[in-house]
Amino acid sequence: MLSGGAELLVLSVVGLCVLDFFELETGAHVWTSLARGPEVVRVRVLPARPGLSPAAAVREHLERQAAFDEAARHGGALPPNPAALLPVVRRIRFDPPRRQGRAAPIEIEDYAMGYAEAAQVRSLSQALAPLWLLRMSREDVA
């Protein structure tokens, strides 16, 4: 578990069909709970570049952000904003159960898959499992 509120997190996940599976995660994920205000998490799923470590990906992102900020301060032509808010792809409202082993209500709206559900679950992963199974069954039709 992360502590201290991470600003940027890079995961390197490589394998057969990984990009196809996770590409629908690209966008803004809105998390809400009764205990705090909404939290927007920007997700970008990119193809793995040979030799690019997660640390190097962070450095590249920070360099692009610095270039954007500098151009914005000086009023020049703006390069693409690496922190631009993307369309909302999922909304989740969930307050984890107060007691271990108990269920709590969750609401999920996945706009990329056209999926919505309200359920009682013990964990977020329990609620996402049916959505991921549905995603694995999708077929792209040309």
Results as ranks from 00 to 15, higher is better:
D20K: 13
P79V: 00
R64Q: 09
A104N: 02
E63C: 00
E25L: 14
A66P: 00
L128A: 06
F21N: 11
E7N: 15
R90T: 15
L11P: 00
L62Q: 13
R90C: 15
V43K: 04
Y115Q: 10
A116C: 13
F21T: 11
E117G: 08
S53A: 12
W132Y: 09
V89W: 03
R64N: 05
L131I: 13
F22D: 12
S123T: 05
S33L: 00
D69Q: 12
H74E: 14
L134F: 03
L24A: 12
V30E: 06
A142Y: 13
L16Y: 13
E117V: 14
Q120R: 14
G114V: 02
P80F: 03
M136F: 08
A83F: 02
V13K: 04
W31S: 03
A28C: 15
A35D: 11
T26Q: 12
E7H: 15
A83S: 15
P50G: 05
R102T: 10
G75E: 07
G76A: 00
R99E: 09
A116G: 14
D20W: 07
A83V: 04
P130T: 02
G51T: 03
A28K: 11
A67L: 02
R42I: 05
E60F: 05
E107C: 10
V14W: 05
Y115R: 12
R49M: 07
S3I: 09
D69W: 04
L134N: 06
R36L: 09
V43H: 08
T32H: 04
L128M: 12
A67V: 03
A28G: 09
L52S: 03
R91D: 07
A104E: 00
A28H: 13
P97E: 02
Y111I: 06
E39D: 09
A48T: 12
A55Y: 06
E39C: 14
G5R: 09
W31M: 07
I108W: 10
R98L: 15
A129P: 02
H29I: 04
A142K: 11
Q100P: 11
R90M: 14
P54N: 03
L134M: 08
D95G: 10
H61I: 01
T26F: 13
E63P: 00
A71Y: 06
R99A: 11
A119H: 03
Y111N: 04
L24G: 12
L86A: 07
H61C: 01
A28Q: 15
R93Q: 13
Y111P: 01
M136D: 09
V30Q: 07
P47V: 05
R90V: 15
S12H: 14
V18C: 11
R122C: 12
V121E: 06
Q65I: 01
N81D: 08
A6R: 12
S12N: 13
A57S: 06
G51C: 02
P38D: 04
V89D: 04
L134W: 01
A142F: 13
A77Y: 03
T26R: 14
R99C: 04
R122W: 05
R44L: 08
P38K: 00
A35H: 06
P38V: 01
A35R: 10
E117D: 08
A77S: 10
R59G: 07
P96E: 09
V41F: 07
G75I: 00
V141N: 09
V89T: 06
I108T: 13
L62G: 02
G101S: 01
E117S: 12
P80V: 01
P80E: 06
